[in-house]
Simulated scan of single mutants.
Amino acid sequence: MASTFPIRRIVVAVVLSCAVLVSTTACGGETRSTQSAALTAAESSPSPSASAERQKLAKTRFVANAGLAAGAAYQWIVKPYKAGKFKKGAKGRTFALVKAGLAGAFTYNRLKAASENAKGDPLLSKAVAPLTSGIESLKGLGGKLRKGDAGDADVGMFEKMINGVKDAGQKAGAPVKDQVPSAGQLSGG
Rank of each mutant, 00 (worst) to 15 (best):
M1T: 12
A2Y: 15
F5G: 13
P6S: 04
R9P: 14
R9I: 15
I10M: 07
V11F: 03
V11R: 07
V12I: 13
V14I: 13
V15C: 15
L16V: 08
L16S: 07
S17V: 08
S17H: 05
C18K: 03
S23L: 09
T25H: 04
A26I: 02
G29C: 07
G29F: 02
E30H: 10
E30R: 12
S33Q: 14
T34C: 08
T34S: 10
A41I: 10
A42I: 08
E43Y: 06
S44I: 09
P46I: 07
S49A: 09
A50E: 14
S51Y: 01
S51H: 04
R54K: 05
Q55N: 11
K56A: 12
L57P: 07
A58Y: 00
K59G: 09
R61K: 10
A69C: 09
A69S: 08
A72Y: 03
Y74V: 11
Q75N: 13
Q75P: 14
I77L: 07
K82I: 04
K82W: 01
K82V: 06
A83P: 12
K85F: 02
G89N: 11
A90I: 05
A90K: 05
K91M: 01
K91G: 05
T94A: 03
L97W: 01
V98M: 12
G101V: 00
L102D: 12
L102A: 14
N109V: 12
R110A: 01
L111T: 04
K112T: 15
K112A: 14
A113D: 08
S115M: 15
E116C: 05
E116G: 09
K119T: 07
K119V: 05
G120Y: 01
D121L: 03
D121N: 11
L124F: 02
S125K: 03
S125Y: 01
K126L: 03
A129H: 08
P130G: 11
T132Q: 04
S133R: 06
S133D: 11
G134T: 07
I135R: 01
E136M: 09
E136W: 03
K139V: 06
G140F: 01
G140N: 06
L141F: 09
L141C: 14
G142S: 03
G142R: 00
G148T: 11
G148P: 15
A150R: 06
A150W: 02
A153Y: 00
D154P: 11
V155C: 02
G156K: 09
M157Q: 05
E159P: 01
N163P: 15
G164Q: 02
D167T: 15
A168E: 02
Q170V: 12
K171T: 12
A172V: 13
A172G: 15
A172N: 13
A172K: 09
G173P: 09
A174K: 02
P175F: 05
V176K: 00
K177M: 11
K177N: 14
D178N: 07
Q179K: 11
S182Y: 01
G184A: 10
L186E: 00
G188L: 10
G188W: 04
